[in-house]
């Protein structure tokens, strides 16, 4: 699970986290009491349809601004450690 979220935990941290999560998950088990048969999941509180934007392009960001916050950039590209073929791809 930690690796899915790209987080690392030491052994000691793992134990504490596991205890915390267990307590929380125990607590949320109470939802099991609720009869939700036939209830539509409410992902949105708004009774709206998604609005549509006209297909008009705006000017692109100045490229130096686009990479201004980058920890590492070269030219106008973001730079990351070498990606090994197939590594973690979606």
């Amino acid at each position: 699970m930690a690796s899915l979220a790209r987080l690392t935990y030491s052994e000691e941290e793992t134990a504490r986290l596991a205890a915390d999560l267990e307590a929380i998950l125990d607590y949320v088990e109470t939802l099991g009491e609720v009869n939700t048969e036939g209830v539509r999941p409410m992902e949105h509180v708004l009774p709206l349809e998604t609005p549509l934007r006209e297909d008009r392009a705006v000017a692109a960001m100045a490229p130096d601004r686009a990479v201004a916050n980058a920890p590492v950039a070269k030219g106008f590209a973001f730079v990351v450690p070498k990606v090994i073929d197939g590594e973690e791809e979606g």
């Binding site: 590492v72 450690p81 070498k82 090994i84």
Partner: peptide, 22 residues
């Protein structure tokens, strides 16, 4: 990758993700 803090001297991509976020 694009902004904010990155862990120092990552040994690879996976290490960069894990340490940056942890």
């Amino acid at each position: 990758v694009r902004y904010g803090r990155r862990a120092d001297d990552p040994s690879g991509l996976s290490d960069m993700y894990h340490r940056t976020r942890s």
